[in-house]
């Protein structure tokens, strides 16, 4: 299940959804979740707000595609991926990933794979409001390297 939305999400409700029988019919008991939040500092300038732009349509397609890749690679239930867009404040939740598997190793790996691929392939762009004005955030080489590692390590 994927969702691109402006509204906040409830981690408790999403946890119930990850473990619910319609999403997790085999009752997998190893659950790994990841939550990303807005930081209030970046490159030494205080961040007072964040604006997230996306490419409607392509974003959803990309998230479904990386979900499918994770399901092909590990024995997991359908992952839950939520990503917010629009204006956010420091401390706000941005992204949620929930994965259920029979064993913890697959659940941890699939969750990490999903966030690494999301960060380098899903068309979202962050713009920060700082004391110096608005600035677009630069993509980080370390994120690209993390995603490349999975591609090179295709089992």
């Amino acid at each position: 299940m994927i969702s691109v939305q402006t509204q906040d999400f409830d981690i408790g409700a999403l946890y119930q959804q990850v473990t619910a029988s319609d999403n997790n019919p085999l009752g997998y008991g190893a659950i790994v979740t990841f939550v990303g939040k807005v930081r209030d500092f970046n490159l030494e300038q205080n961040v007072s707000g964040l604006s997230l732009e996306h490419y409607p349509g392509m974003t959803e397609k990309t998230l479904l595609n990386i979900s499918q890749q994770a399901k092909n690679r590990w024995l997991i239930a359908d992952p839950i991926i939520i990503h917010r867009v629009g204006d956010l404040q420091p401390g706000d939740q941005i992204v949620y990933i929930g994965v259920a598997s029979a064993h913890r190793k697959a659940a941890f790996e699939a969750c990490e794979f999903l966030i690494d691929y999301l960060k380098t392939q899903a068309p979202f762009w962050k713009k920060e409001q700082t004391e110096a004005g608005y600035q677009w955030i630069d993509a980080r080489e370390s994120d690209q390297q993390a995603a490349t590692k999975w591609a090179n390590n295709d089992e």
Binding site: H54, Y55, G57, M58, V95, K119
Partner: peptide, 25 residues
């Protein structure tokens, strides 16, 4: 709506998007 290399052929009716490296998550 699929990221593609620069030598990808173009057909009439295509939707083509240009953008900087993505920074979500």
């Amino acid at each position: 709506q699929e990221m593609s290399p620069w030598d990808t052929p173009v057909n009439d009716g295509d939707e083509i998007a240009f953008f900087p490296p993505v920074t979500g998550g």
